[in-house]
C-alpha cells in the first residue's frame, strides 16, 4: 500500500495541468521554471505531510455529478426565494435554529453535506459534530425541506479509506 507515491504522482499531474493552463507560454525556459516549482511544491507537500490517505480530489463519478446537478438547481431556487424575501415589505422572514440529525458515515461526506447546506442561501450550517448539524435557516419552509432528508440521501457516500 504505497499511497504516498501514487498520490504524489496524481498531485503532480494536477499541478502540471494547472501550471500549463495558467501560464500559456511554452518556451523551454518557462517550462523548466514550471517543472522546478512543481517539484518544490511536491517536496513541501511531502514535508508537511499533507499527502495522506484521502484520495486526491480527482474522483468524479456519477453520484457526485448527479449531486452537483441537484445542488446547482437547489442553489438557484433558494436564491430566488431569498431575493423574494428581501423585497417583500414587512416581516418576511421567520428565522429558525435547529439540530439536524445526520447519519452519514465518513467524515468527507459529512463535510460535503454541511458545505452543501451552507452553499444554498437560506440555510447555514452553524456547528457540526458526529451526530448532528446545527442549522440556522431563514424560513420554516427551508427547515422542512432539509428535514425531509432529500439532500442527505443524494450525498455520495462511497468514499472508502484505502
Amino acid at each position: 500500500m504505497n499511497y504516498p507515491v501514487k498520490h504524489s504522482f496524481s498531485l503532480g499531474v494536477i499541478l502540471l495541468a494547472l501550471w500549463l493552463g495558467m501560464s500559456g507560454k511554452f518556451t523551454v525556459f518557462m517550462l523548466c521554471l514550471g517543472l522546478a516549482s512543481i517539484l518544490a511544491v511536491l517536496y513541501i507537500a511531502h514535508r508537511m505531510d499533507v499527502i495522506d490517505r484521502e484520495k486526491f480530489p480527482a474522483h468524479v463519478n456519477v453520484p457526485l455529478l448527479r449531486f452537483w446537478l441537484y445542488l446547482s438547481r437547489e442553489v438557484v431556487i433558494a436564491n430566488i426565494d431569498v431575493v423574494r424575501r428581501i423585497f417583500t415589505p414587512g416581516k418576511s422572514i421567520s428565522p429558525q435554529m435547529f439540530e439536524l440529525p445526520q447519519t452519514l458515515k465518513t467524515d468527507l461526506s459529512c463535510v460535503i453535506y454541511a458545505n452543501a447546506i451552507t452553499l444554498t442561501p437560506g440555510t447555514v450550517s452553524v456547528n457540526l459534530n458526529k451526530e448532528s448539524i446545527t442549522v440556522h435557516s431563514l424560513s420554516k419552509e427551508a427547515m422542512k425541506d432539509l428535514c425531509s432528508g432529500r439532500m442527505a440521501s443524494l450525498v455520495p457516500e462511497d468514499y472508502k479509506d484505502e
Partner: peptide, 15 residues
C-alpha cells in the same frame, strides 16, 4: 440580525 444577514451575503457569493 447577524445570522439572517449571512443568508443575504450567500446570494452575492453563489449565484
Amino acid at each position: 440580525d447577524f445570522y439572517s444577514r449571512l443568508h443575504a451575503v450567500g446570494i452575492t457569493d453563489t449565484l
